[in-house]
């Protein structure tokens, strides 16, 4: 059986072969031990023990922690992959871009005004988190369109702070 393992835009084919897997033409024996309810995974890879973490999963797959980084790993067989590839693809992004809070924090300053034209890289909002001020910059040139927050306001991660419209 062949699995299609996808992280971001990269896909790796992994084929089951007895107690091992074939990856890029190399046969790797692998077993996994874990205690139900525990987030720790003990993987034995060709005799080598590796500890990984499992942080549940999201719509984009298993959330596997490895060497300090979280990977969202989608594992599909041929059939589910085929089904997904036929699903309608959302239209490419266009129009206004939203500036979202990359972390929870306190809005310290808003460096722009409604209707102001900004260049890519211009400072837009200063967000304070863990006692550090972080300047959020314009991802592209545009016109500031809907400022949704005020200085002094606490925002959650992912909260929309303002929009950048086309010039």
């Amino acid at each position: 059986m062949t699995w299609f393992v996808t992280v971001n835009d990269r896909t790796l084919e992994v084929t089951r072969d007895g107690d091992a897997f074939v990856v890029d033409g190399v046969r790797v024996p692998a077993t996994l031990v874990r205690t139900p309810g525990r987030a720790e995974l003990r993987l034995t890879l060709d005799g080598r023990a590796v500890v990984l973490g499992l942080d549940g999963h999201s719509p984009s797959g298993w959330r596997v922690m490895h060497q300090g980084l979280l990977h969202e790993v989608r594992v599909e067989d041929e059939r589910t992959r085929e089904l997904r590839s036929r699903a309608p693809v959302p239209k490419g992004a266009g129009g206004p871009v939203q500036l979202k809070a990359p972390m929870p924090g306190l809005v310290v300053r808003i460096a722009v005004r409604e209707g102001e034209q900004v260049q890519a890289g211009a400072g837009l909002v200063v967000l304070e988190a863990m006692k550090m001020e972080n300047e959020l910059k314009a991802p592209r040139a545009g016109v500031v369109q809907g400022i949704r927050v005020n200085p002094g306001q606490t925002v959650e991660k992912g909260a929309v702070l303002l929009q950048l419209g086309d010039v």
Binding site: V5, V7, L45, W62, V75
Partner: peptide, 11 residues
């Protein structure tokens, strides 16, 4: 994709 991550997810 690290092979450890890929194989852990497949398993």
């Amino acid at each position: 994709i690290p092979i450890e991550v890929a194989l852990a997810a497949v398993l």
